[in-house]
């Protein structure tokens, strides 16, 4: 964890039980995933891997992920009845378990979400104590904690893109905490994932979105707010 622990890590967090890694962390992965999608999904396929694969029912990870996909916070007592809430809101879901996926972190969950014609695939790892890492978005390496404000930009692989984007962010006096870029191939689409200490103004986001070489922009403010 970055920096020193807080008094509220010792007396807290306030959360729905039973487990910070198998319940609270999973809720947060769900909350991060719907921000990538841009809303509550109509359909969700959830795959639990490795340690999650066998224990997801007992730890309530299934209700936790559905609760997160319905935008519930980690201390929302509706998590326990998330399946009923999903029915009311028209969210269809199914679960799958896969063991021995050695490339994945022991506590990994993958969600494939559909909303209208939009589809996303998000892979999240629950690191313990409710902390998470979103490792992949639509097959691109992402690696963000969703604790800070996150910008995901899919753009043409043009030269100067990184410098340009970071200078736009710098104009807002926003500090970049982490930044990573991955691409599927040379001159193909590159995915920029930028974690910032503070948020961006809507006008900056609209400006970046309007650039022709930027194909898609997803802005995820601190998911716990």
């Amino acid at each position: 964890m970055a920096g020193k622990s807080s008094v509220f890590d010792m007396i807290g967090p306030v959360m729905i039980g039973p487990s910070s890694s198998h319940t609270a962390g999973v809720v947060r992965i769900g909350r991060a995933a719907i921000r990538v999608l841009g809303g509550i999904p109509d359909e969700a396929l959830i795959t639990f891997y490795n340690s999650f694969a066998r224990t997801y029912e007992g730890h309530g990870s299934d209700r936790a992920i559905i609760g997160g996909l319905l935008d519930m916070k980690t201390d929302d007592d509706r998590i326990k009845t998330a399946f009923e809430v999903a029915k009311e809101k028209g969210l269809q879901y199914s679960f799958k378990s896969i063991g021995n996926a050695s490339v994945y972190h022991p506590n990994t969950v993958k969600v494939n979400l559909t909303k209208g014609t939009k589809k996303v695939e998000v892979i999240g790892e629950s690191l313990g104590g409710g902390l998470i890492n979103i490792s992949k978005v639509d097959g691109f390496n992402a690696d963000f904690s969703a604790q800070a404000h996150t910008l995901i930009i899919k753009a043409q692989d043009v030269s100067g893109a990184i410098a340009f984007i970071s200078s736009v962010i710098a104009q807002e006096k926003t500090n970049i905490a982490t930044m990573s870029v991955s691409r599927k191939g040379k001159n193909d689409i590159a995915c920029h994932v930028i974690e910032m200490d503070s948020g961006l103004q809507p006008i900056t986001i609209e400006y970046l979105k309007s650039l022709p070489w930027i194909k898609e922009l997803i802005y995820i403010p601190d998911i716990d707010l």
Partner: peptide, 10 residues
């Protein structure tokens, strides 16, 4: 699956 304070853990 009720609401608690993890102090220090759940």
């Amino acid at each position: 699956m009720g609401r608690v304070v993890a102090a220090p853990t759940a």
